[in-house]
Design a protein around this nucleic acid. Structure first.
Lengths: 226, 226
DNA sequence: CTTAATTGCGTTATTATGACGCAAACATAC
DNA sequence: GTATGTTTGCGTCATAATAACGCAATTAAG
Protein backbone atom coordinates (compact mmCIF):
# COMPACT_ATOMS: atom_id res chain seq x y z
CA UNK A 1 0.00 0.00 0.00
CA UNK A 2 1.34 3.40 -0.93
CA UNK A 3 0.32 6.96 -1.68
CA UNK A 4 0.46 7.88 -5.31
CA UNK A 5 -0.14 11.50 -6.17
CA UNK A 6 2.88 13.49 -7.19
CA UNK A 7 2.56 16.02 -4.39
CA UNK A 8 3.78 15.52 -0.82
CA UNK A 9 1.04 14.43 1.55
CA UNK A 10 0.27 15.77 5.00
CA UNK A 11 0.50 13.57 8.05
CA UNK A 12 -2.84 12.26 9.27
CA UNK A 13 -3.43 11.99 12.99
CA UNK A 14 -6.39 10.31 14.65
CA UNK A 15 -7.42 12.06 17.85
CA UNK A 16 -9.92 10.69 20.33
CA UNK A 17 -12.32 12.49 22.62
CA UNK A 18 -13.07 9.84 25.23
CA UNK A 19 -16.11 10.65 27.34
CA UNK A 20 -16.86 8.97 30.64
CA UNK A 21 -19.46 9.64 33.33
CA UNK A 22 -17.94 9.71 36.80
CA UNK A 23 -19.22 10.94 40.13
CA UNK A 24 -22.20 12.62 38.55
CA UNK A 25 -20.13 14.56 36.03
CA UNK A 26 -19.21 14.21 32.38
CA UNK A 27 -15.50 13.55 32.17
CA UNK A 28 -12.83 13.46 29.50
CA UNK A 29 -9.82 11.16 29.38
CA UNK A 30 -6.69 13.25 28.75
CA UNK A 31 -3.10 12.23 28.17
CA UNK A 32 -0.07 13.92 29.65
CA UNK A 33 2.46 13.99 26.83
CA UNK A 34 5.91 12.65 27.60
CA UNK A 35 7.62 14.05 24.51
CA UNK A 36 7.70 17.26 22.49
CA UNK A 37 5.79 19.06 21.17
CA UNK A 38 3.57 20.02 24.08
CA UNK A 39 5.66 17.97 26.49
CA UNK A 40 3.96 17.80 29.90
CA UNK A 41 0.81 19.29 28.40
CA UNK A 42 -2.54 17.58 28.50
CA UNK A 43 -3.80 16.46 25.09
CA UNK A 44 -6.31 14.11 23.54
CA UNK A 45 -4.96 10.60 23.10
CA UNK A 46 -4.09 10.04 19.46
CA UNK A 47 -1.86 8.32 16.93
CA UNK A 48 -0.83 8.66 13.34
CA UNK A 49 -2.85 6.79 10.77
CA UNK A 50 -0.75 3.99 9.35
CA UNK A 51 -0.79 3.19 5.67
CA UNK A 52 -2.78 -0.03 6.04
CA UNK A 53 -5.09 1.21 8.75
CA UNK A 54 -8.69 2.28 8.65
CA UNK A 55 -9.63 5.16 10.94
CA UNK A 56 -11.35 2.66 13.20
CA UNK A 57 -8.24 0.49 13.33
CA UNK A 58 -6.25 3.42 14.62
CA UNK A 59 -9.00 4.25 17.12
CA UNK A 60 -8.99 0.67 18.38
CA UNK A 61 -5.22 0.71 18.58
CA UNK A 62 -5.37 3.80 20.79
CA UNK A 63 -8.30 2.62 22.90
CA UNK A 64 -7.20 -0.98 23.37
CA UNK A 65 -3.41 -1.00 23.26
CA UNK A 66 -2.60 2.44 24.58
CA UNK A 67 -5.46 2.99 27.00
CA UNK A 68 -6.58 -0.54 27.80
CA UNK A 69 -10.23 0.02 26.92
CA UNK A 70 -12.25 -2.83 25.49
CA UNK A 71 -15.86 -1.73 25.33
CA UNK A 72 -16.85 1.61 23.82
CA UNK A 73 -19.16 3.43 21.48
CA UNK A 74 -17.22 5.12 18.70
CA UNK A 75 -18.25 7.68 16.11
CA UNK A 76 -16.40 9.93 13.70
CA UNK A 77 -16.55 13.53 14.84
CA UNK A 78 -14.94 15.92 12.37
CA UNK A 79 -11.69 16.48 10.48
CA UNK A 80 -9.43 19.37 11.43
CA UNK A 81 -7.04 21.07 9.05
CA UNK A 82 -5.50 24.23 10.51
CA UNK A 83 -2.04 24.71 8.98
CA UNK A 84 -0.40 25.39 12.33
CA UNK A 85 -2.25 22.86 14.43
CA UNK A 86 0.96 20.82 14.81
CA UNK A 87 4.26 22.73 15.18
CA UNK A 88 6.17 19.86 13.59
CA UNK A 89 4.56 20.39 10.20
CA UNK A 90 1.36 19.81 8.30
CA UNK A 91 -0.86 17.32 10.05
CA UNK A 92 -4.56 16.78 9.65
CA UNK A 93 -6.61 15.33 12.44
CA UNK A 94 -9.49 12.99 11.77
CA UNK A 95 -11.11 13.00 15.18
CA UNK A 96 -13.48 10.50 16.73
CA UNK A 97 -15.33 10.50 20.01
CA UNK A 98 -15.84 7.53 22.25
CA UNK A 99 -18.32 6.89 25.04
CA UNK A 100 -17.16 4.48 27.70
CA UNK A 101 -18.22 3.29 31.10
CA UNK A 102 -15.38 4.28 33.42
CA UNK A 103 -16.25 1.51 35.85
CA UNK A 104 -15.05 -1.01 33.26
CA UNK A 105 -11.74 0.81 32.90
CA UNK A 106 -8.72 -0.27 34.86
CA UNK A 107 -6.22 2.53 34.78
CA UNK A 108 -3.21 0.25 34.47
CA UNK A 109 -4.02 -1.85 31.44
CA UNK A 110 -2.67 0.17 28.51
CA UNK A 111 0.77 1.43 27.52
CA UNK A 112 -0.21 5.04 28.14
CA UNK A 113 -2.59 4.27 30.95
CA UNK A 114 -0.31 5.68 33.62
CA UNK A 115 -0.11 9.05 31.91
CA UNK A 116 -3.82 9.36 31.56
CA UNK A 117 -6.34 11.10 33.78
CA UNK A 118 -10.04 11.91 33.93
CA UNK A 119 -11.09 15.58 33.95
CA UNK A 120 -14.61 16.95 34.36
CA UNK A 121 -15.57 18.71 31.13
CA UNK A 122 -16.40 21.91 33.00
CA UNK A 123 -12.91 22.03 34.50
CA UNK A 124 -10.43 21.11 31.80
CA UNK A 125 -6.76 22.05 31.85
CA UNK A 126 -5.22 23.94 28.90
CA UNK A 127 -4.85 21.53 25.99
CA UNK A 128 -2.04 21.20 23.47
CA UNK A 129 -2.40 21.39 19.68
CA UNK A 130 -5.92 22.49 18.62
CA UNK A 131 -7.43 19.95 20.96
CA UNK A 132 -9.55 22.51 22.78
CA UNK A 133 -11.49 23.13 19.54
CA UNK A 134 -11.86 19.40 19.00
CA UNK A 135 -13.27 19.00 22.49
CA UNK A 136 -15.64 21.89 21.89
CA UNK A 137 -17.01 20.28 18.73
CA UNK A 138 -17.29 16.93 20.51
CA UNK A 139 -19.27 18.39 23.40
CA UNK A 140 -21.64 20.12 21.01
CA UNK A 141 -22.11 16.89 19.07
CA UNK A 142 -22.73 14.78 22.16
CA UNK A 143 -25.26 17.25 23.54
CA UNK A 144 -27.13 17.34 20.25
CA UNK A 145 -26.99 13.59 19.81
CA UNK A 146 -28.15 12.56 23.26
CA UNK A 147 -31.43 14.43 22.74
CA UNK A 148 -32.55 12.26 19.84
CA UNK A 149 -30.51 9.08 19.86
CA UNK A 150 -29.94 6.42 22.51
CA UNK A 151 -26.31 7.08 23.38
CA UNK A 152 -26.68 7.96 27.04
CA UNK A 153 -26.73 4.28 27.97
CA UNK A 154 -23.21 3.87 26.56
CA UNK A 155 -21.89 5.92 29.48
CA UNK A 156 -23.57 3.77 32.15
CA UNK A 157 -23.33 0.19 33.34
CA UNK A 158 -25.42 -2.38 31.51
CA UNK A 159 -27.86 -2.26 34.37
CA UNK A 160 -28.87 1.21 35.47
CA UNK A 161 -31.70 3.04 37.16
CA UNK A 162 -33.83 5.86 35.83
CA UNK A 163 -32.52 8.35 38.40
CA UNK A 164 -28.99 7.52 37.22
CA UNK A 165 -29.93 8.10 33.59
CA UNK A 166 -31.70 11.30 34.58
CA UNK A 167 -28.66 12.67 36.37
CA UNK A 168 -26.48 11.71 33.42
CA UNK A 169 -28.66 13.73 31.05
CA UNK A 170 -28.60 16.71 33.36
CA UNK A 171 -24.81 16.49 33.64
CA UNK A 172 -24.26 16.18 29.89
CA UNK A 173 -26.71 18.89 28.91
CA UNK A 174 -26.00 21.19 31.82
CA UNK A 175 -29.68 21.86 32.48
CA UNK A 176 -32.19 20.55 34.95
CA UNK A 177 -34.87 18.27 33.55
CA UNK A 178 -38.12 17.47 35.28
CA UNK A 179 -37.66 14.02 36.74
CA UNK A 180 -41.19 12.79 35.97
CA UNK A 181 -41.40 14.11 32.43
CA UNK A 182 -37.97 12.64 31.69
CA UNK A 183 -39.15 9.28 32.92
CA UNK A 184 -42.23 9.40 30.71
CA UNK A 185 -40.26 10.33 27.58
CA UNK A 186 -37.59 7.69 28.03
CA UNK A 187 -40.04 4.91 28.85
CA UNK A 188 -42.29 5.83 25.92
CA UNK A 189 -39.29 5.61 23.58
CA UNK A 190 -39.06 1.91 24.32
CA UNK A 191 -35.28 2.05 24.48
CA UNK A 192 -35.09 0.71 28.02
CA UNK A 193 -36.74 -2.28 29.65
CA UNK A 194 -37.21 -3.05 33.31
CA UNK A 195 -35.32 -6.06 34.57
CA UNK A 196 -37.69 -6.56 37.48
CA UNK A 197 -34.84 -6.07 39.90
CA UNK A 198 -34.23 -3.12 42.18
CA UNK A 199 -31.05 -1.32 43.11
CA UNK A 200 -30.63 -1.94 46.85
CA UNK A 201 -28.46 -0.15 49.37
CA UNK A 202 -29.86 3.36 49.43
CA UNK A 203 -31.64 4.35 52.58
CA UNK A 204 -34.71 5.45 50.59
CA UNK A 205 -36.96 3.75 48.11
CA UNK A 206 -35.00 1.38 45.87
CA UNK A 207 -35.24 2.34 42.20
CA UNK A 208 -36.00 -0.19 39.48
CA UNK A 209 -33.12 -1.49 37.40
CA UNK A 210 -33.38 -1.15 33.63
CA UNK A 211 -31.42 -2.35 30.64
CA UNK A 212 -30.94 -0.95 27.16
CA UNK A 213 -33.39 -2.63 24.81
CA UNK A 214 -31.18 -4.05 22.09
CA UNK A 215 -34.10 -5.59 20.23
CA UNK A 216 -35.75 -2.29 19.39
CA UNK A 217 -35.55 -0.90 15.88
CA UNK A 218 -33.52 2.29 15.84
CA UNK A 219 -35.60 5.43 15.81
CA UNK A 220 -35.46 8.95 17.10
CA UNK A 221 -37.05 10.16 20.26
CA UNK A 222 -37.50 13.77 21.18
CA UNK A 223 -36.36 14.99 24.54
CA UNK A 224 -37.12 18.62 23.61
CA UNK A 225 -35.07 20.46 26.15
CA UNK A 226 -35.64 24.18 25.87
CA UNK B 1 5.32 23.23 4.90
CA UNK B 2 6.00 19.53 5.11
CA UNK B 3 4.81 16.34 6.70
CA UNK B 4 6.99 15.05 9.47
CA UNK B 5 6.17 11.66 10.85
CA UNK B 6 8.50 8.84 9.91
CA UNK B 7 5.84 6.75 8.20
CA UNK B 8 4.57 7.28 4.64
CA UNK B 9 1.35 9.28 4.48
CA UNK B 10 -1.76 8.52 2.47
CA UNK B 11 -2.97 10.87 -0.24
CA UNK B 12 -5.83 13.10 0.84
CA UNK B 13 -8.56 13.88 -1.66
CA UNK B 14 -11.32 16.42 -1.20
CA UNK B 15 -14.58 15.30 -2.83
CA UNK B 16 -17.61 17.49 -3.25
CA UNK B 17 -21.28 16.59 -3.29
CA UNK B 18 -22.81 19.57 -5.09
CA UNK B 19 -26.58 19.78 -4.69
CA UNK B 20 -28.79 21.88 -6.91
CA UNK B 21 -32.56 22.15 -7.25
CA UNK B 22 -33.71 21.99 -10.86
CA UNK B 23 -37.09 21.40 -12.45
CA UNK B 24 -38.67 20.46 -9.17
CA UNK B 25 -36.06 17.84 -8.35
CA UNK B 26 -32.97 17.62 -6.18
CA UNK B 27 -29.97 17.27 -8.48
CA UNK B 28 -26.30 16.41 -8.14
CA UNK B 29 -23.45 17.83 -10.19
CA UNK B 30 -21.32 14.96 -11.50
CA UNK B 31 -18.08 14.95 -13.43
CA UNK B 32 -17.26 12.66 -16.32
CA UNK B 33 -13.65 11.68 -15.79
CA UNK B 34 -11.29 12.12 -18.70
CA UNK B 35 -8.43 10.07 -17.27
CA UNK B 36 -7.88 6.77 -15.50
CA UNK B 37 -8.91 5.43 -13.09
CA UNK B 38 -12.64 5.34 -13.78
CA UNK B 39 -12.12 6.97 -17.18
CA UNK B 40 -15.51 7.90 -18.71
CA UNK B 41 -17.22 7.14 -15.41
CA UNK B 42 -19.26 9.68 -13.50
CA UNK B 43 -17.71 10.78 -10.24
CA UNK B 44 -17.93 13.55 -7.68
CA UNK B 45 -15.75 16.54 -8.54
CA UNK B 46 -12.64 16.52 -6.38
CA UNK B 47 -8.99 17.36 -6.04
CA UNK B 48 -6.04 16.44 -3.90
CA UNK B 49 -5.38 18.51 -0.83
CA UNK B 50 -2.21 20.52 -1.36
CA UNK B 51 0.33 20.95 1.40
CA UNK B 52 -0.54 24.58 2.08
CA UNK B 53 -4.27 24.27 1.59
CA UNK B 54 -7.08 24.18 4.07
CA UNK B 55 -9.98 21.87 3.19
CA UNK B 56 -12.01 24.93 2.31
CA UNK B 57 -9.28 26.21 0.02
CA UNK B 58 -9.43 22.99 -1.95
CA UNK B 59 -13.22 23.15 -2.03
CA UNK B 60 -13.09 26.70 -3.34
CA UNK B 61 -10.50 25.69 -5.93
CA UNK B 62 -12.83 22.97 -7.19
CA UNK B 63 -15.99 25.06 -7.06
CA UNK B 64 -14.54 28.27 -8.49
CA UNK B 65 -11.74 27.26 -10.82
CA UNK B 66 -12.88 23.88 -11.97
CA UNK B 67 -16.64 24.33 -11.97
CA UNK B 68 -17.05 28.08 -12.23
CA UNK B 69 -19.27 28.43 -9.18
CA UNK B 70 -19.10 31.56 -7.09
CA UNK B 71 -21.92 31.42 -4.57
CA UNK B 72 -22.51 28.35 -2.46
CA UNK B 73 -23.16 26.99 0.99
CA UNK B 74 -20.42 24.62 2.06
CA UNK B 75 -20.17 22.18 4.96
CA UNK B 76 -17.89 19.31 5.87
CA UNK B 77 -19.65 15.99 5.45
CA UNK B 78 -17.52 13.06 6.54
CA UNK B 79 -14.12 11.49 5.96
CA UNK B 80 -13.82 8.20 4.08
CA UNK B 81 -11.02 5.72 4.52
CA UNK B 82 -11.65 2.41 2.74
CA UNK B 83 -8.31 0.91 1.77
CA UNK B 84 -9.42 0.13 -1.76
CA UNK B 85 -11.44 3.26 -2.46
CA UNK B 86 -8.83 4.42 -4.99
CA UNK B 87 -7.16 1.75 -7.19
CA UNK B 88 -4.02 3.85 -7.47
CA UNK B 89 -3.17 3.44 -3.80
CA UNK B 90 -4.11 4.68 -0.37
CA UNK B 91 -6.20 7.81 -0.54
CA UNK B 92 -8.49 9.26 2.07
CA UNK B 93 -11.37 11.45 1.11
CA UNK B 94 -12.43 14.38 3.23
CA UNK B 95 -15.79 15.11 1.66
CA UNK B 96 -17.85 18.28 1.75
CA UNK B 97 -21.28 19.06 0.42
CA UNK B 98 -22.32 22.27 -1.29
CA UNK B 99 -25.73 23.77 -1.92
CA UNK B 100 -25.97 26.02 -4.94
CA UNK B 101 -28.60 27.75 -7.00
CA UNK B 102 -28.27 26.23 -10.48
CA UNK B 103 -29.73 29.35 -12.09
CA UNK B 104 -26.57 31.21 -11.12
CA UNK B 105 -24.39 28.57 -12.72
CA UNK B 106 -23.17 28.95 -16.27
CA UNK B 107 -22.06 25.57 -17.48
CA UNK B 108 -19.07 26.93 -19.39
CA UNK B 109 -17.20 28.96 -16.80
CA UNK B 110 -14.86 26.44 -15.19
CA UNK B 111 -12.06 24.24 -16.49
CA UNK B 112 -14.10 21.08 -15.98
CA UNK B 113 -17.40 22.70 -16.71
CA UNK B 114 -17.83 21.00 -20.04
CA UNK B 115 -17.46 17.55 -18.53
CA UNK B 116 -20.02 18.19 -15.85
CA UNK B 117 -23.73 17.35 -15.79
CA UNK B 118 -26.73 17.56 -13.46
CA UNK B 119 -28.43 14.30 -12.43
CA UNK B 120 -31.59 13.95 -10.35
CA UNK B 121 -30.69 12.25 -7.09
CA UNK B 122 -33.29 9.56 -7.65
CA UNK B 123 -31.78 8.65 -11.01
CA UNK B 124 -28.01 8.65 -10.62
CA UNK B 125 -25.62 6.77 -12.92
CA UNK B 126 -23.10 4.30 -11.46
CA UNK B 127 -20.36 6.25 -9.71
CA UNK B 128 -16.62 5.63 -9.64
CA UNK B 129 -14.52 5.19 -6.49
CA UNK B 130 -16.67 4.96 -3.35
CA UNK B 131 -18.61 8.01 -4.41
CA UNK B 132 -21.97 6.27 -4.18
CA UNK B 133 -21.47 5.89 -0.42
CA UNK B 134 -20.43 9.51 -0.12
CA UNK B 135 -23.59 10.59 -1.93
CA UNK B 136 -25.65 8.39 0.32
CA UNK B 137 -24.21 10.01 3.45
CA UNK B 138 -24.69 13.46 1.93
CA UNK B 139 -28.35 12.84 1.15
CA UNK B 140 -28.97 11.59 4.64
CA UNK B 141 -27.25 14.64 6.09
CA UNK B 142 -29.12 17.11 3.90
CA UNK B 143 -32.47 15.53 4.73
CA UNK B 144 -31.74 15.66 8.44
CA UNK B 145 -30.38 19.18 8.29
CA UNK B 146 -33.17 20.78 6.29
CA UNK B 147 -35.70 19.82 8.96
CA UNK B 148 -34.09 21.93 11.66
CA UNK B 149 -31.80 24.45 9.99
CA UNK B 150 -32.41 27.10 7.34
CA UNK B 151 -30.52 25.57 4.45
CA UNK B 152 -33.35 25.15 1.96
CA UNK B 153 -33.03 28.75 0.89
CA UNK B 154 -29.49 28.11 -0.32
CA UNK B 155 -30.90 26.04 -3.17
CA UNK B 156 -33.27 28.77 -4.38
CA UNK B 157 -32.93 32.26 -5.83
CA UNK B 158 -32.64 35.11 -3.38
CA UNK B 159 -36.27 35.89 -4.03
CA UNK B 160 -38.61 32.92 -3.84
CA UNK B 161 -42.21 32.04 -3.13
CA UNK B 162 -43.63 29.81 -0.43
CA UNK B 163 -44.94 27.27 -2.96
CA UNK B 164 -41.41 27.04 -4.39
CA UNK B 165 -39.93 26.43 -0.95
CA UNK B 166 -42.67 23.92 -0.23
CA UNK B 167 -41.97 21.93 -3.38
CA UNK B 168 -38.25 22.03 -2.63
CA UNK B 169 -38.82 20.48 0.79
CA UNK B 170 -41.03 17.78 -0.68
CA UNK B 171 -38.41 17.02 -3.33
CA UNK B 172 -35.53 16.87 -0.88
CA UNK B 173 -37.38 14.81 1.73
CA UNK B 174 -39.32 12.66 -0.68
CA UNK B 175 -42.56 13.05 1.24
CA UNK B 176 -45.64 15.19 0.83
CA UNK B 177 -46.09 17.95 3.36
CA UNK B 178 -49.35 19.75 4.00
CA UNK B 179 -49.05 23.06 2.22
CA UNK B 180 -50.82 25.11 4.89
CA UNK B 181 -49.04 23.62 7.88
CA UNK B 182 -45.73 24.05 6.11
CA UNK B 183 -46.49 27.72 5.52
CA UNK B 184 -47.32 28.24 9.18
CA UNK B 185 -44.14 26.56 10.43
CA UNK B 186 -41.82 28.42 8.10
CA UNK B 187 -43.41 31.79 8.73
CA UNK B 188 -43.39 31.25 12.50
CA UNK B 189 -39.68 30.46 12.34
CA UNK B 190 -39.02 34.02 11.23
CA UNK B 191 -36.43 32.91 8.71
CA UNK B 192 -38.21 34.43 5.73
CA UNK B 193 -39.68 37.87 5.23
CA UNK B 194 -42.17 39.04 2.63
CA UNK B 195 -40.85 41.55 0.11
CA UNK B 196 -44.31 42.87 -0.64
CA UNK B 197 -43.93 41.85 -4.27
CA UNK B 198 -45.71 39.03 -6.05
CA UNK B 199 -44.45 36.54 -8.58
CA UNK B 200 -46.39 37.32 -11.76
CA UNK B 201 -46.85 35.22 -14.86
CA UNK B 202 -48.82 32.23 -13.62
CA UNK B 203 -52.37 31.97 -14.82
CA UNK B 204 -53.61 31.59 -11.23
CA UNK B 205 -53.22 33.63 -8.10
CA UNK B 206 -49.78 35.19 -7.90
CA UNK B 207 -47.83 34.06 -4.82
CA UNK B 208 -45.99 36.46 -2.52
CA UNK B 209 -42.25 36.79 -2.92
CA UNK B 210 -40.10 36.21 0.16
CA UNK B 211 -36.43 36.59 1.07
CA UNK B 212 -34.24 34.84 3.58
CA UNK B 213 -34.07 36.91 6.75
CA UNK B 214 -30.35 37.43 7.29
CA UNK B 215 -30.90 39.54 10.38
CA UNK B 216 -32.40 36.75 12.44
CA UNK B 217 -30.37 35.08 15.15
CA UNK B 218 -29.70 31.45 14.26
CA UNK B 219 -31.97 28.97 15.95
CA UNK B 220 -33.59 25.67 15.26
CA UNK B 221 -37.07 25.19 13.97
CA UNK B 222 -38.92 21.90 13.96
CA UNK B 223 -40.55 20.72 10.81
CA UNK B 224 -41.40 17.36 12.43
CA UNK B 225 -42.05 15.28 9.37
CA UNK B 226 -43.13 11.81 10.35
C1' DC C 1 -68.59 36.86 -16.45
C1' DT C 2 -67.83 32.06 -15.76
C1' DT C 3 -64.33 28.49 -15.08
C1' DA C 4 -60.38 26.15 -13.31
C1' DA C 5 -56.48 26.31 -10.70
C1' DT C 6 -53.64 28.01 -6.99
C1' DT C 7 -52.65 30.84 -3.00
C1' DG C 8 -53.45 32.61 1.59
C1' DC C 9 -55.93 32.39 5.84
C1' DG C 10 -58.48 30.14 9.20
C1' DT C 11 -60.75 26.25 12.21
C1' DT C 12 -60.88 22.15 14.99
C1' DA C 13 -59.90 17.69 17.01
C1' DT C 14 -56.11 15.39 18.64
C1' DT C 15 -51.70 14.92 20.63
C1' DA C 16 -47.61 16.43 23.12
C1' DT C 17 -45.64 19.11 26.60
C1' DG C 18 -44.56 21.37 31.08
C1' DA C 19 -45.52 21.86 35.72
C1' DC C 20 -46.93 19.88 39.29
C1' DG C 21 -49.37 16.62 43.49
C1' DC C 22 -49.13 12.57 46.08
C1' DA C 23 -48.63 7.98 47.79
C1' DA C 24 -45.39 3.99 48.02
C1' DA C 25 -40.92 2.39 49.49
C1' DC C 26 -36.89 2.38 52.18
C1' DA C 27 -33.35 3.01 56.15
C1' DT C 28 -32.90 5.17 60.30
C1' DA C 29 -34.24 6.91 64.73
C1' DC C 30 -37.19 6.46 68.45
C1' DG D 1 -43.46 -1.60 66.35
C1' DT D 2 -43.94 3.27 64.90
C1' DA D 3 -42.53 7.81 63.33
C1' DT D 4 -39.44 10.49 60.23
C1' DG D 5 -37.05 12.10 56.18
C1' DT D 6 -36.01 11.21 51.61
C1' DT D 7 -36.45 9.36 47.06
C1' DT D 8 -39.02 6.84 43.62
C1' DG D 9 -42.99 5.82 40.76
C1' DC D 10 -47.43 7.08 39.07
C1' DG D 11 -50.85 10.25 37.90
C1' DT D 12 -53.31 14.87 36.82
C1' DC D 13 -54.27 19.04 34.33
C1' DA D 14 -53.77 23.37 31.89
C1' DT D 15 -51.44 24.84 27.93
C1' DA D 16 -49.05 24.48 23.52
C1' DA D 17 -48.16 22.16 19.24
C1' DT D 18 -49.66 19.38 15.55
C1' DA D 19 -52.35 17.23 11.72
C1' DA D 20 -56.10 17.47 8.88
C1' DC D 21 -58.91 19.99 6.82
C1' DG D 22 -62.53 24.09 4.77
C1' DC D 23 -62.97 28.13 2.19
C1' DA D 24 -62.56 32.60 0.15
C1' DA D 25 -59.38 35.53 -2.64
C1' DT D 26 -56.76 35.89 -6.81
C1' DT D 27 -55.46 35.17 -11.51
C1' DA D 28 -55.63 34.05 -16.72
C1' DA D 29 -58.22 31.84 -20.02
C1' DG D 30 -62.48 30.71 -22.20
Amino acid sequence: MHAFNKYPNPSVAIDLVVFGYREGKLNLLLLNRKEAPFQHSWTLPGAFLQMEELFQDTCHRILRTKLGLERFYLEQLYSFDALDRDPRGRALSVSYYALINPASYTTTAGAMANDVQWFPTEDLPPLGFDHASIVSVALKRLRAKILYHPVGFELLEEAFTLPELHQLYEAVLGVSIDRRNFRRKILESGYIIATGQKRTGAKNRHPDIYQFNKAITPHQFHLNIS
